[in-house]
Amino acid sequence: MIHWTEHGEERSAPWRSESGTAAPRRVVLADDTLAADTAYRLACAGTGLLWRGDFQNARHLLQALMRRADKPPKAKGAKAGRKAQATATAGSAIPAQAFHLHRQAQAQRARTLGMLLVPVQGDHTIALRRAPDLREAFAEAWGPADGTACVVSLREVLGLVGAHEWRKKGVEIPALGTEQAPRRIHPHYGVFSPVRGEYVDLVAQAPLPANGLAFDIGTGTGVLAAVLARRGVQRVVATDQDPRALACARDNVQRLGLSAKVEVVQADLFPAGQAPLVVCNPPWLPGRASSSIEHAVYDEDSRMLRGFLSGLAAHLSPGGEGWLILSDLAEHLGLRSREQLLEWVAGAGLRVVDRHEVQPRHAKAADASDPLHAARSAERTSLWRLAAL
């Protein structure tokens, strides 16, 4: 719950946060008269700003807060310059430390920008001037309206709207086939979008060991299961344990006309039985996720990666292959070594048949201003072809 005072009365409402962020302890009312500098100072101090003004003006204020949050600090004198240089050098020498500092800074930024709050009525409407009708977007993310009003950060609302637009438009996946057939994947809210196409291309191009049956472990949007089916695999069993991912994968399979070939089932990693091809694209970075969407990026203690490797041999048909799709960004950041990965492979009774790799094409790989540029520019995404010993 969050609590505030309005018209001399104490009021409260349920707090909703997909990322699990705690409710602000202090909440004040804010409207169109609030100056951006004042708003930023309050937000940095952890004060929630419950908006009572024009919705579009709240969006403009959030943009102003973002500019202030992203503004680099001014160096004061030569001593500060030398300190900044030393910090940058240390960050380059210790990639893991630079990565953790980057995550801390991003988390602090998210907390600050998340202090601008809007009320959502029990019917999923926002009772503010010029507020758009977001009922469809709320229903997609939260389910049908149940009459319970809540307060949510404007930043999260806009993220929800963005996810709604992605779901409507879809993501073009050329690996799904020709332009004559549907080849768009429609990510649902909270399910990671397949915008990094290089890993999809690896699955589309690697030689198939067989085309009778394949397992897709941790299917997410269902994109890899769909690619395998379009390549001629007769039956694909796609697993996930997240309800949003399961609904998303089933929706995409149906949109693509692949329901007869792809079965989506709830499972923690493997379905029952064995297959000549078992594919897994686990989260690439060991670390704790701070929101539902981050579970596609961060794999705490490499749980999913190690679980896939340790259980793979038992789920491979004789002569079958396991395809592990994995970026080496964690290696360049010092979060996991190549030697450790190979030890896990060998310890699971597996051998490496071959490895196909590709250089990432995303914008951050070429952005020299990115704090993790050194690691990102060296990153390679690989498809490891594994077989039982």
Results as ranks from 00 to 15, higher is better:
residue 83 K to T: 04
residue 156 E to L: 04
residue 58 A to C: 03
residue 56 Q to I: 02
residue 80 A to Q: 13
residue 37 D to N: 07
residue 57 N to W: 07
residue 143 G to D: 09
residue 148 T to I: 11
residue 55 F to N: 09
residue 122 G to R: 07
residue 125 T to Y: 13
residue 69 A to Y: 01
residue 53 G to V: 10
residue 82 R to K: 14
residue 96 A to D: 12
residue 51 W to S: 12
residue 112 T to D: 02
residue 120 V to W: 07
residue 53 G to E: 08
residue 84 A to M: 06
residue 89 T to S: 05
residue 98 A to H: 01
residue 114 G to Q: 09
residue 115 M to R: 15
residue 85 Q to H: 09
residue 65 L to R: 05
residue 146 D to R: 15
residue 163 A to D: 15
residue 159 G to N: 15
residue 67 R to E: 12
residue 36 A to K: 09
residue 68 R to K: 14
residue 78 A to K: 14
residue 110 A to P: 01
residue 80 A to K: 08
residue 155 R to Y: 03
residue 160 L to D: 09
residue 154 L to R: 07
residue 145 A to Y: 11
residue 134 L to S: 03
residue 101 L to M: 03
residue 123 D to K: 06
residue 32 D to M: 07
residue 129 R to T: 13
residue 61 L to D: 05
residue 165 E to A: 12
residue 76 K to D: 15
residue 41 R to Y: 01
residue 120 V to M: 06
residue 107 A to P: 00
residue 95 P to H: 01
residue 113 L to M: 06
residue 54 D to A: 05
residue 133 D to H: 07
residue 88 A to K: 13
residue 37 D to E: 14
residue 62 L to N: 09
residue 69 A to I: 00
residue 84 A to S: 04
residue 161 V to T: 06
residue 96 A to C: 05
residue 53 G to N: 11
residue 84 A to W: 04
residue 74 K to Y: 00
residue 50 L to S: 07
residue 131 A to V: 08
residue 95 P to S: 03
residue 36 A to H: 03
residue 101 L to K: 10
residue 76 K to E: 15
residue 50 L to W: 11
residue 126 I to N: 08
residue 102 H to T: 13
residue 109 R to E: 10
residue 50 L to N: 08
residue 159 G to V: 10
residue 136 E to W: 07
residue 139 A to V: 04
residue 62 L to W: 00
residue 68 R to V: 05
residue 48 G to N: 06
residue 132 P to G: 08
residue 100 H to Q: 11
residue 34 L to M: 14
residue 86 A to C: 01
residue 34 L to V: 08
residue 34 L to W: 09
residue 44 C to G: 14
residue 64 A to G: 05
residue 57 N to K: 13
residue 95 P to C: 01
residue 118 V to P: 06
residue 73 P to H: 09
residue 143 G to H: 13
residue 67 R to G: 03
residue 76 K to A: 14
residue 117 L to T: 06
residue 99 F to A: 10
residue 96 A to K: 15
residue 163 A to W: 05
residue 52 R to E: 12
residue 118 V to G: 13
residue 68 R to W: 12
residue 101 L to P: 00
residue 60 H to G: 05
residue 152 V to G: 01
residue 125 T to I: 05
residue 34 L to T: 02
residue 100 H to W: 14
residue 63 Q to H: 07
residue 114 G to A: 12
residue 86 A to K: 11
residue 59 R to D: 02
residue 71 K to L: 15
residue 112 T to R: 12
residue 41 R to W: 02
residue 111 R to V: 01
residue 126 I to V: 15
residue 54 D to I: 04
residue 83 K to I: 02
residue 62 L to H: 01
residue 160 L to I: 09
residue 102 H to C: 04
residue 45 A to V: 02
residue 65 L to Y: 11
residue 104 Q to V: 00
residue 129 R to G: 01
residue 126 I to P: 10
residue 91 G to S: 03
residue 43 A to L: 03
residue 78 A to G: 02
residue 66 M to K: 06
residue 113 L to N: 09
